[in-house]
Design a protein around this nucleic acid. Structure first.
Lengths: 233, 233
DNA sequence: AATGGTATGATTGTATACAATTATACGAGA
DNA sequence: TCTCGTATAATTGTATACAATCATACCATT
């Protein structure tokens, strides 16, 4: 009993629907499908060599992931993220990543702690070599470890959702070399606070880590690709 | 442009799929479908007078909402809310309601402020008369006003989701008369902080409001209907 | 009696056909 | 020329048919 794995995940890589889901998601995140672009069931079905049924089911999931918006009887459109959305997400994430770090301090396993240390070590290595792709990957993984370590399926799922959502932005942000290094350092400090079982400090550092990431983004003006928020603020 | 509403929502009440989704969700939240119960496509389809197709699509959405878990080629099972889930949700909500109150302090409109004051006035009236149903309704509405007032679609949607999720628990908790009164008082204080434009105080009060609600729930042992968390803590 | 394998039924996965809705084009009337 | 309405095409919504997978029962073998 109670051996159910993870809810909220699309884990069947081998069903057609699962593959279609992964593919479209990848194409949206990579920028192949642009903001507000309409996705047509038959076109995507033909491209992947499947019928409309699995495509439609994938659409329903992508909608709840927030990557597309479905207007009934009309179509599926890639959702745009506004600058205001990004700001709100980072404010929310700041609090929740803090809570996550606090909980992880109590609940983290030995294996997770080790992977976290290894992650930071590797990130420092790749930073020195200027390997941007690997650094982005390690950055993602650091947060995933933290999410898993907090031992709360609810919080884990929520943070993974948000993480996913701003991936498009983050990919570009980390391309700024200096922020990559700063981010590594902040990860290291968070890790050390957790290792020292200092939950208060871990929480505050994680709070600040998000705020710094956002500030950097604003400073570099990179978030502007997601539309102007001036009309909304 | 940019008049799209909310992401992550299933807003088509009029399509079969939308109705099926709402119906199953309601039945899960109301307890008609119990934890670990298997939901069969044809059975539900026949019950609602529709074919498997809209049922399947609704399933895919319910899975991402976290209400059911789909095991490929096997079936769809109702996921239960454990006591740990409830606890986690209240911790998350504590932070986010705080953030919401802070943002609302800045963004609330005159109309929203007035409705909030009226809400508290009415709640006091019904508390004196012992009208439990109206008090529950007003309690829900108070939070909805707050969510709308923060002027963040992201946060609003997130909080409404959680609010909905723990509705079963909350309904019972408010049945405790003393808590109903205490809750009203806390609402009043939050309202006054917002009116006085004291964002810090509003945030702290909203934080504490959630913690109190949770503590009360634990004290009354009401959350135990959601299964034992002893094995998970 | 216990075990293993095969046949049968039940259930989900996918494809396709048809219905309903929406978008587009074109022509009539002013 | 402009506007409105209708016809047509394109697209999504739903139902159904068929394929694949999984669960169950029964029988043969030991």
């Amino acid at each position: 009993m109670n051996n159910y794995d993870i809810k909220h995940t699309v884990n069947d890589k081998y069903s057609l629907r699962g593959r279609v889901f992964q593919k479209i998601r990848e194409d949206i995140l990579s920028g192949k499908y642009k903001e507000n672009e309409e996705l047509k069931e038959v076109a995507i079905g033909e491209e992947l060599g499947v019928s409309r049924t699995p495509v439609r089911e994938a659409f329903r999931q992508l909608e709840l992931e927030g990557l597309i918006q479905i207007i009934p009887n009309k179509g599926a459109y890639v959702t745009g993220i506004t600058a205001k959305d990004v700001k709100d997400i980072y404010m929310i994430r700041s609090l929740l990543e803090g809570l996550c770090a606090r909980m992880a301090t109590e609940k983290i396993t030995k294996e997770q702690m080790e992977e976290m240390e290894e992650n930071i070590y590797l990130a420092e290595f790749h930073a020195g070599k200027g390997h941007m792709d690997q650094m982005a990957e390690l950055d993602n993984r650091f947060h995933d470890i933290l999410y898993e370590a907090c031992d709360s399926k609810m919080l884990e799922h929520l943070l993974k959702d948000f993480h996913q959502y701003v991936l498009r932005v983050r990919q570009k942000t980390l391309a700024t070399n200096s922020r990559g290094n700063a981010s590594n350092n902040e990860h290291k400090q968070i890790m050390e606070a957790i290792k020292a079982k200092d939950a208060d400090r871990a929480e505050k550092l994680a709070n600040q880590h998000m705020i710094n990431a956002y500030d950097n983004m604003v400073k570099n003006g990179l978030y502007e690709i997601y539309g102007d928020a001036s009309s909304e603020e």
